[in-house]
Design a protein around this nucleic acid. Sequence first.
DNA 1: ATGGATATTGACTGCGAATGCAAACGGGGC
DNA 2: GCCCCGTTTGCATTCGCAGTCAATATCCAT
Lengths: 339, 339
Amino acid sequence: MTAGKGAGMRGGARVTSYDVARLAGVSQSAVSRAFSEGASISQEMRTRIRRAAIELGYAPSNIARALITKRSRLIGVVVTRNTARNNPDILFHLGQRIQDAGSRMLVFTLPSDNASDTILPDLLAYHVDGVIAATSISEEALAACARHRIPVVLYNRQGPAAAVACDHAAGMRALIDHLVRVGTRTPAFVAGPLEAPVSEQRMRGARDAFASHGIVLLPQVHSDYSHEGGRQAAARIFATNRPDTIVCANDSMALGVMDACRHDLGLRVPDDVAVAGFDDIAQAGWPSYALTTVAQPIEALTEAAVRFVVELVEGNTITQDTRLMQPRLIMRGSTPKPA
Amino acid sequence: MTAGKGAGMRGGARVTSYDVARLAGVSQSAVSRAFSEGASISQEMRTRIRRAAIELGYAPSNIARALITKRSRLIGVVVTRNTARNNPDILFHLGQRIQDAGSRMLVFTLPSDNASDTILPDLLAYHVDGVIAATSISEEALAACARHRIPVVLYNRQGPAAAVACDHAAGMRALIDHLVRVGTRTPAFVAGPLEAPVSEQRMRGARDAFASHGIVLLPQVHSDYSHEGGRQAAARIFATNRPDTIVCANDSMALGVMDACRHDLGLRVPDDVAVAGFDDIAQAGWPSYALTTVAQPIEALTEAAVRFVVELVEGNTITQDTRLMQPRLIMRGSTPKPA
DNA sequence: ATGGATATTGACTGCGAATGCAAACGGGGC
DNA sequence: GCCCCGTTTGCATTCGCAGTCAATATCCAT
């Protein structure tokens, strides 16, 4: 197009509502009203102002708007490296949903877990309307947010705040029932880091489910959620045990276990040992692995999380409700077929 | 701790610099100075004010600050779904680096490529100081940013703006030289989407490198960067050809090709056909694949991109320089060993 | 003791837009 | 023709903080 008609060419000084008002021959208030939904303004005036705004390349400043309305249209999203690693799509989906809700995603990356307190000042400084936390958050940090009336929604974890989570225990129950049906009698478990509550829930779910079949889940080893960690965990397990099934707290480790079995230990999967995971990451479906796993309802989780935080922001409320989403068992070739 | 001493318990009304000033018995200006680096203020006063601020739970408002300083400390990062898919760590690293630089990452997710224009109003509304674009951006959008004095750094692509990119051609040259050395004579190529400039550069790099050895790169098929896409591409290639090597524009497709060879076509890798990719994603190193590939210097790229955009913001400049980073050949088992 | 240079401090204004309030406008009923 | 009421519009103020300018405090040399 005509790259530079009146479109803000002069100097770079920001085009303000006053500029638009002058051009349209109206007051600044009118310009403001022309850009806010449901304001008292006539149709004719609105279109006239909009036209003038386009001519000048004007866009209302969210910053100034935030200052007076006390709504920044910013949702803080707290993640660690593992969030992106375990499921690359989560951040993208959250971003999309937040945009759909008319806000933007301000990302707070934590170098490690348990570093949640360092971001508190910025959470306040940037006036985030709400927070979605896909990582562990200290109780102090949660309390501070509550004090400042910033709603927090925990993503796939539970704690003293609103939460949206996958029903890990139910998922494990479905998985373990299936495993027992196809022959598992001496299972082993590879958990995630000790301090990971999700891993803890999944392990407990698995243990309880096996127990209900009269089966003891031993050994249980801890690892770090990674492929390499799973591989090493398998080595440790087979050094002293001979389980017929290895259940893992996530898919990455399960794939590592499969690789260890095949490439390091010379075992066939599922003939010599069955392997199962949790998450249903993309690689689990690849033919080299065909991992039996439990699919988390990622889209439902992110959508629910965003909806939840928006509700809390708009209602100016804070709750500690948890909304559970149901996962789904995905049967593939890393475990024996049912008869 | 004493969860609720003076720490903003009253009502939730924001604690302002005036509140701190009152408590410390000083002026509001003093409070402002106590929180800005290099301001003219005595050590004693600064500590006194800081103490009062802590007591009230005060943090300076970035919003108000941005309004007057015209620096939002917000860096816009534009991504598509593929950005996260292809390398999950990129977003995380960018976030970390941006935080290290004292800003925060505001993420703009695009549902598809070629949708860059829809985010322009928000880029302006949120007053982002600069933009890092890990996706294609229309020339109109770039021009608009330039007009508004918003520096844009393209991430791993090139165009009419500052750019930080991997030297794809050099990477391909190193890879192809190696392949020819270990015996490749009849190669095939699996490219990404037609409209992906990165894929185009890699394909051209491969073609030129083969040509310099007197080898014609045929056939060339296009796919969609995904594992499944690679798998289907392999089927198409082997329907009519019998290449001794398949080079792919990215690792995901290469892994799909390997799976197709082994599971669908009954071919051994690398004995019957060699496979190579580009990116060095985590899965490429897994023992089931051991994919020969070219590692992009992700950390160097993100660090350079953030440094570049910060330089441009602080210098209030705009350039169209491109900074190229060198990738590294990773030789693994999906191609024959050198003699 | 005094002038002057330097280091601190406070009062005040403005960044850009939203909003309560009052004025202006327009239409209908009498 | 007049008054009342509902719709639009403009005026003035406000959000929280940074930075300018003038005022004050401090210290050294003379």
